[in-house]
Structures are given as C-alpha cells and as structure tokens.
Write a protein that binds this DNA or RNA. Structure first.
Length: 190
DNA sequence: GCCTGGATCCAT
DNA sequence: TGGATCCAGGCC
C-alpha cells in the first residue's frame, strides 16, 4: 500500500526527513519492480534555506515542481551526470523537499545489478544520491511524478526508526550555504 | 548569449 | 585530488 498523499503534506520537512528513514521506496520502471529501504535523507527547507534550490522564493522551470503540494518527485541533474531524487513535501506554495541520499536494496537485485554494473546484493547499503537513483532506475524523466502513481511510490512496512538509531549531522556538498550549511538536516540509520 | 560551478562519484 | 559532463541560473 502506497503512503497517502496527505502524509507528505506535513509542513515540518525536518520531521519528514527523519520519518522517511525506514520507509520502502518502490520503482516500477517498464514493469521492473525494485524495492529499497530509505537509509539516508536530507531536508531542504524551501525559501528560507540557503542550500535549497528554492531559496529566497526562487521560482524557475526547474524549481517549479517544488512548489506543488507534497507527494511528487523532484529529480534534477547534478554535476552533468547524476540524477538526484527528492520528495516534495508540505502544502502547495511551500517548496520543501527531502533528498534521498541512501537506500538498502531489498528486491529487484537483478535489475539493480544491470543498471549499475556492480555485483549488488540483497540487503546492501547503497550510499550517495547519485548511486541511489542509478540503482533504482530513476532519471529526470521521473521528475514531477505523483507518489500516488504507478512508477514511483513509498510504502510503510519497512520500520519506524527509533531516535537512538538515527544519526543527525550537517548536510553534504553545500558549503556555499553559509550558516545554513551547519544545520543538522542530514539523517542516517545507524 | 556567455560563463560559472554544482544537494556527486570514482579512479588516481 | 582531479576529471567526467551538462545545464541552470546569474549576469552582460
């Protein structure tokens, strides 16, 4: 069962970034199902967060999807080669997003091996947002998809991470964000 | 229209 | 530590 869209409309993006740990992320790419547990996330707090693409209310073709009502994907290209998957959260007009930075591969190992060229195993931790999308078969073609659809969705039924099993730290690769670079918005399962 | 650099990854 | 690779966003 996919999580209801109402789940994503919580205004507290930092809460959601933590809560998404342990949830199951499922892709159906051309009929091939891949399932993985979310193991690492980062919160991007919309207009007030210097690290966010929507900082200062920036509204462009790329960021437009961030302003939608929570429960859609935001996928963009980074460094000319890596697709980055975000979950848009919050009510319409509030451009919050959660970056998925790491997963634990559960099902669809064969497809994941083919996509990555690596000898991946069930239960293996996949680190890094670029590696995450590559493993799951996500590209920019999956930008703006509803998480209520048939290609990409989340399920409960992984587990709910206990606070003592969550590591909070500052975010990666956003040194340009000044003070905001120090915010403890990165969450990992221990 | 041009230029800069990036929410990365991997080999060196 | 640097190269891959390309486009968004800022500035002219």
């Amino acid at each position: 069962m996919a999580l209801p869209l109402s789940y994503y409309q919580n205004e507290d993006v930092v809460f959601l970034a933590r809560d998404l740990l342990g949830k199951i992320l499922v892709t159906n790419i051309g009929g091939i199902i891949t399932r993985a547990i979310i193991a690492e996330t980062e919160a991007y707090a919309g207009e007030v967060d210097k690290a966010s693409h929507a900082y200062g209310g920036r509204r462009t073709n790329r960021t437009e999807v961030m302003y939608k009502s929570g429960g859609v994907t935001y996928v963009y290209l980074c460094y000319g080669m890596h697709n980055m998957l975000n979950i848009v959260t919050g009510p319409a007009g509030i451009p919050h997003a959660v970056l998925i930075r790491g997963i634990i591969l559960e099902d669809g190992v064969g497809a994941a091996r083919k996509r990555t060229g690596k000898n991946l195993k069930k239960g293996q931790l996949i680190e890094g947002p670029g590696n995450t999308t590559k493993t799951l078969g996500i590209t920019r073609e999956h930008n703006g998809l509803s998480l209520n659809g048939h290609e990409l969705w989340l399920e409960d039924g992984g587990f709910t991470a206990h606070p003592v099993n969550i590591l909070a730290s500052k975010r990666i690769g956003i040194d340009y964000a000044g003070k905001d670079a120090l915010l403890p918005y990165r969450f990992r399962l221990k």
